[in-house]
């Protein structure tokens, strides 16, 4: 049986939640990290496209919560509860955090990928959400799509094809 599902698209520094009969996708992750949190029983899945590790880096007037790991993960959990997810049953899959360019420079912005991954993991640990699988680091861009019915996260790259984690 194959039915086509609606795709919920999540942009950079955004978050959203998919329910049954939907999948949720974000495209072109480089140093950013895509965090999928899901409730297998209720088949509710949220995704946040994190750009930066910590909101203390913000020097602007307004805070876009989905941009940062430390604000994006809690905001995603809240958004999922509103869609009926059970907070104690949550699991996570994460992907991204690549280093797209090989520089000799030790500039902070070049190491942003690993820092994003680390910050996301800290947040998930804080909320007691286990990471079931991850595809992080490396130097490839990734497009990811999660299906709440199968709990599979599909990862697409330009050089290594497609795989599920």
């Amino acid at each position: 049986m194959f039915t086509s599902l609606d795709v919920v698209k999540v942009g950079i520094a955004q978050l959203d939640v998919a329910t049954q009969k939907q999948t949720i996708r974000t495209s072109g992750l480089g140093s950013c990290v895509g965090v999928v949190i899901y409730d297998e029983v209720k088949q509710v899945a949220g995704l946040v496209h994190v750009m930066l590790p910590d909101s203390s880096l913000s020097r602007g007037d307004q805070l876009t919560v989905a941009k940062f790991a430390d604000t994006g993960v809690p905001a995603l959990i809240d958004a999922m509860k509103l869609k009926g997810a059970n907070a104690v049953k949550l699991k996570a899959k994460i992907a991204g955090g690549a280093q797209m360019f090989k520089f000799t420079s030790n500039q902070d912005s070049m190491r942003i990928g690993p820092r994003n991954v680390e910050a996301v993991k800290n947040q998930l640990r804080k909320f007691g959400i286990p990471i079931v699988s991850e595809d992080t680091g490396g130097n490839s861009g990734r497009t990811i799509e999660f299906n709440p019915q199968t709990s599979k996260l599909q990862i697409r790259t330009v050089n290594q094809g497609v795989k599920d984690i």
Binding site: G30, M51, G60, G141
Partner: peptide, 26 residues
């Protein structure tokens, strides 16, 4: 800096140029 080269998805490549500005604005 010396230029670095990558062939990949545009979003993955350009986002490194947004890191600085993203600390201030959307």
């Amino acid at each position: 800096t010396p230029p670095a080269l990558a062939s990949d998805m545009f979003g993955a490549i350009i986002s490194i140029g947004l890191i600085e500005v993203s600390q201030i604005s959307d």
